[in-house]
Amino acid sequence: MARHEFLRVLAESKAKAENENTYLGQLWAILTPVLNSIVYVLIFGILLKTRAGMDSVIGFIVVGTFTYGYFSTTVTNASKSITSNIRLVQSLNFPRILMPMATALKDLIVLLPGLIVMILIAQVSIATGPGWSAVHPERWILLIPAIAFLTLFSSGLGFLLAKFASRMPDLVKLLPFILRVGMYASGVLFAIQHQVGESLIRQVMEHQPVAVYLNLARQAVLSEKSIPLDAGLWLEGAVWAVVVFTIGFVAFWRDEARYGRD
């Protein structure tokens, strides 16, 4: 069976279906991220003024929310991919791993227009803060490996959760709470190093994988004095990605025969 073709068609079809039954149709692919950023900008950038450790508040927060949002959506959708498509899974014979892979790929496709919006807002935020000289377009290309690593990491986590969720569907109900804790523990809305004192906890928080990926995305798109280009963190990001993806993939694969057949 042409697995990569099947994967691509499934992912593209689902991505298209997200915005299909509306009048504006695919325009929502851009509108949704823009509207989301307006909310964050209003609340965090304008209503609550400056924050310690951030040169461009809006940019910092917008990059954080978009990146964490992508992580959170990918993991949630991948973990539900078998159970929410159970009728398809029980009707067609295909390697089950393609289901969470297709949802992860679809979430990546949906992210892309949002990324463009994110970069633009970040640059405007820099320009109105530190100034145009602080804009570094040559760094934007780093966003590609950053998102690639995050995708691998989120998929791996998603596979792992999908495997357990099919035995214990209640897990899916717990996930939103875990992800909410993750959001506050990953420096989405504030800079960890300025809110948490020097301690083991801070070290753990800064080096847990999601915080690392947020940092990498910010390295690529912003120019914050507290977030310099750091090769060590890139290595960390790569390692987390490969390790978690492999663990998740193998764990899911070993149970292949079982999904949808219980």
Binding site: M1, A2, E5, F6, V9, L10, S13, K14, A17, E20, N21, R87, L88, Q90, S91, L92, N93, F94
Partner: peptide
Amino acid sequence: SAVLMGDLTGERNIMIGGLAL
């Protein structure tokens, strides 16, 4: 009693079903 993807068009489902077969 097989179920393809209800949200997608017949055309898309032909592709998905065909590939799966």
